[in-house]
Amino acid sequence: MSRNVYKPPVQKGFGQFIDAMVVLALVYLSLLAPLLLGGTAAESAATEHKAAPTWEELKQNDVMKAQWEKLGHTPETAEPIVTKKFSYEVEPLSLGITIAVIVGYFIFMLKMSDREYREVINERFGPKAGKGD
């Protein structure tokens, strides 16, 4: 059982505090990034409407109209909700980048994990060439 056991350094309290803060900072950054880059959930946009709308213009039938009114809405307050639409245009470049990022992330993770996993297994069970468990 004379195996090479890796002895990690002991981390001081300040270092532990800094490490926890680094992860937090990265989380907040990624939450704010879409806002800073101008592409949030509001990738959906309301369409323009000039005059005061009616339920008919908003394509609401009598039953829909009655339910909207029970919920406390008028055609004016319902308009921004009804006319807000998503745009599902697929841009080949951005889709390609997104696919590359996701696939690249998993490939990097699996390759790196495999390298680390071999260290774990070799320390736990001994070198492969030795007596198996």
Partner: peptide, 27 residues
Amino acid sequence: YLGYGTSLLSIMAFYILVSIWFVVRRY
């Protein structure tokens, strides 16, 4: 991606950065 593409990329960027940080700093 349909509607939340930028959010998707920024969250992936978080996990990529934090993975590099783990390999270099925490492991």
